[in-house]
Design a protein around this nucleic acid. Sequence first.
DNA 1: TTCGTCATGTAATGGGTTACATGATTAC
DNA 2: GTAATCATGTAACCCATTACATGACGAA
Lengths: 191, 191
Amino acid sequence: MAGARSDILEFAVLGILDDGPLHGYELRKRLSGVLGAFRAISYGSLYPALKTLKGRGLISEFQPVTDADLEAAAAGPALSSKRARISYALTAAGKDRFAELVSDASPESWEDERFAARMAFFGRTEATVRMRILTGRRSRLEERVATLRESMARSRDRVDTYTQMLAEHGLEGAEREVAWLDSLIAKEVKK
Amino acid sequence: MAGARSDILEFAVLGILDDGPLHGYELRKRLSGVLGAFRAISYGSLYPALKTLKGRGLISEFQPVTDADLEAAAAGPALSSKRARISYALTAAGKDRFAELVSDASPESWEDERFAARMAFFGRTEATVRMRILTGRRSRLEERVATLRESMARSRDRVDTYTQMLAEHGLEGAEREVAWLDSLIAKEVKK
DNA sequence: TTCGTCATGTAATGGGTTACATGATTAC
DNA sequence: GTAATCATGTAACCCATTACATGACGAA
């Protein structure tokens, strides 16, 4: 993914806006479904990020005024609020950037922080890249399982029951994710 | 937990040292078993934290020189290295502080960031506090399950299959943790 | 002798949160 | 009328990581 570190927010925002324009507040809600598991980003992170993205010419701001605009921008339960919210849309450069990011398959893609976001946009990801990320994630997790097992074996008698149960639960979680990935990979192959 | 935010590292370090003196390098390894799941802290975090703790008089530094000291400080696979490592030990104030922290049962205790660390020291936690944290964690997780279910229901037709599978996997993980907590709680009751 | 791991640290950087500030709209 | 939620932002702060710097010890 070209850049260095947490372009993950950039990626997620571009990906969501690639689906249609949205205003900040709603964007944030969608973000929590895309960024790993449960974490929601704060406005103190989102709005500055939006500003940066705009500064880089990847997204553009607009106030939806016509009904059509409202419909396009709201895309929610209802066109409830009439307040002039600030909506954001991808520019051509933004679309290009997202296309670039979504075609990347470098190892960071399957690390904890990024994997969920990457998978959330698998619908717009090439099959080969998808496969690479899934298998990469799988081997990453197996690695973790191995490390965990080893460290549990080493410390078995030193640590108390609670620590052990904690570690065991973590191990089971990792194994479960491996199994889940296996099923996803199998589905990919069948396709 | 008296203080504000991430006294979690403080808590974990005190808890580990409560078991006996240790040097930084080894401390860091143990920390990864105590801090949630898999995360390891970096030296760039650990050493400054140790310095602060020392400044606050909660831990003290010493160079193990006698065989007995070495034995006490190494506590590892072997007394391999003869190099004068800097070991840390709890002071009386440090012991008090740990006792204070370990008896806390405020709601933050069962949030994601803290729960694992709290549970890792359940062996030295009062039964009532233990119970409170376990049940608190449980209801926290159930809350999450509910939110997740609801948000999945709301967005069912809008989001693609991959996002859905991701959400489902997250949901299952949360449900699995609830079940795990149930078994832990049951064990506590029997005791 | 060179590689891996043990071992300890500091400075720069960065990503994020919290707290604060403000105000409109909706449902009761 | 008033509480909840929608909505947008800024400034201060915090915690952690990365990159860097240094060096000893053991094994091949």
